[in-house]
């Protein structure tokens, strides 16, 4: 029923590289809850395209620097 999406991400790594930004602060910056950031970092949820762009813009990097396809 709940299949994990085949999308990898570097959200945790980038968050820690940006002055140890908290999950709550990142969530607030892109308009989702802290729990959703946790789910993204753990690979239990793939964000919408809009949120993915918002995350990459917060970190000042490209979309593919944050998200990737499992196996690539």
């Amino acid at each position: 029923m709940a299949k994990r999406p085949p999308i990898t991400n570097r959200v945790k790594e980038l968050r820690e590289a940006h002055g140890a930004m908290s999950q709550a602060a990142l969530g607030e910056a892109i308009g989702v809850t802290r729990q959703t950031i946790i789910a993204i970092e753990q690979g239990r949820y793939s964000p919408s395209l809009e949120s993915a762009f918002r995350i990459s813009r917060v970190f000042g990097v490209g979309l593919e620097d944050v998200f990737g396809w499992a196996g690539d």
Partner: peptide, 11 residues
Amino acid sequence: SEADGAMDERD
């Protein structure tokens, strides 16, 4: 702090 939170995209 989370009590008045609206549903986000995952919710």
